[in-house]
């Protein structure tokens, strides 16, 4: 493995100043599960690694009006956060299926975003949750919606000398549910063929059902047996990973649903629209036509799961695994 120096700044200012000083010779390192692997694979050749591990304040989760996640928060910490599981379920769904326990103990959410792999598991949930990211350099600081952050596979708007210092997620509207599905070939430790995240806000969280068994029925059945009880979509965000060169929002599909009465037919139409909007490609992990077909299946399924989580919040606890 290439030899490098390893610097451990104790403050953000010190890290920014080192980054400035070493320029192209330096590489920031968070958990290192991508950086060290890329050095071993001879894809990166830094002379100096600047570690963000020792900087206080970058590894915290705070919820005060909005959710603030430090870039050094590990996927394991997200997976274990009851607050995130309850209010921002899509993010839990994604943290829970990323890599292995060993990887999740070390790999950070900031690293997952900055590496900007089209397959980044947390990207689609963050888009669906309406996240913003804060970018800081020695002179400037700006906060941008995460949609604007990714510019291509492995490419972001992050400039030399900038560090991603915070991920901000607005408090969801009342009666909101969110969900993420990672389509993968294996039960664990795989990259997604596709990632689908949906956030849905309804105008109410309780419905009257014509069928007494309704509470135990699948949500699709519940939608059919609403007794003159209409449920409207107040807000929706649909985000897709591995469906285009960057993680993307399916805005046409969202516009079709926003403000409308929820029905099985409409959700089907929304899912079809999302599949048309996507620009998936053929790759080792899956062909474009398959990805498109599965977007249609999974967008509807994730919308259903959102509705389920709103109407039956106690059941948000189980991210389903395919064993």
């Amino acid at each position: 493995m290439k030899k490098f120096d390893y610097l451990k700044p104790h403050t953000l200012d010190e890290a920014l100043s080192l980054l400035n000083q070493y320029g192209n010779r330096a590489q920031l390192i968070a958990g290192g599960t991508d950086v060290i692997v890329m050095i071993k694979q001879k894809k990166l050749f830094p002379d100096v690694l600047i570690s963000l591990q020792g900087i206080p304040g970058l590894g915290q989760i705070d919820y005060n009006g909005m959710l603030r996640i430090g870039p050094m928060v590990t996927h394991r910490a997200i997976e274990k956060s009851e607050l995130i599981r309850k209010e921002f379920s899509a993010l839990t769904d994604s943290a829970d299926v990323l890599g292995s326990v060993q990887i999740r103990n070390v790999a950070t959410i900031g690293g997952n975003i900055v590496t900007a792999a089209p397959s980044a598991d947390t990207a689609a949930p963050l888009l669906a949750l309406g996240a913003q990211v804060k970018l800081k350099s020695m002179q400037t600081e700006r906060t941008i919606p995460i949609e604007q952050f990714f510019t291509g596979p492995g490419e972001t708007v992050l400039e030399k000398g900038q560090i991603l210092t915070e991920i901000l997620i607005p408090k969801p509207l009342p009666n909101t549910g969110s969900a993420y599905w990672k389509l993968q070939r294996r039960g664990a430790l795989d990259l997604p063929i596709l990632g689908v995240a949906v956030l849905l806000s309804l105008d109410k969280a309780t419905v009257t059902c014509s069928d007494l068994l309704c509470t135990a029925s699948p949500i699709s059945t519940v939608l059919h047996s609403l007794e003159g009880d209409e449920v409207f979509c107040k807000e929706v965000r649909i985000a897709l990973g591995v469906a285009a060169p960057t993680p993307m929002r399916a805005t046409k599909a969202e516009n079709l649903l926003r403000g409308k009465k929820i029905s099985d037919e409409l959700l089907k139409e929304v899912a079809e629209t999302a599949a048309k909007e996507a620009q998936p490609r053929d790759s080792l992990r899956g062909e474009a036509w398959y990805r498109r077909d599965m977007i249609e299946v999974l967008v509807k399924r994730m919308a259903m799961r959102c509705i389920e989580r709103i109407l039956r919040p106690e059941e948000t606890i189980f991210p389903v695994r395919l064993w």
């Binding site: 390192i29 290192g32 599960t33 060290i36 690694l49 570690s51 591990q53 990887i103 103990n105 070390v106």
Partner: peptide, 19 residues
């Protein structure tokens, strides 16, 4: 290469020693 670091598992083959 799994070892425990402060009780949590990590893959030591990609973990910088200085950390």
């Amino acid at each position: 290469c799994t070892v425990l670091l402060n009780g949590k598992t990590v893959n030591s083959c990609i973990f910088p020693a200085l950390e």
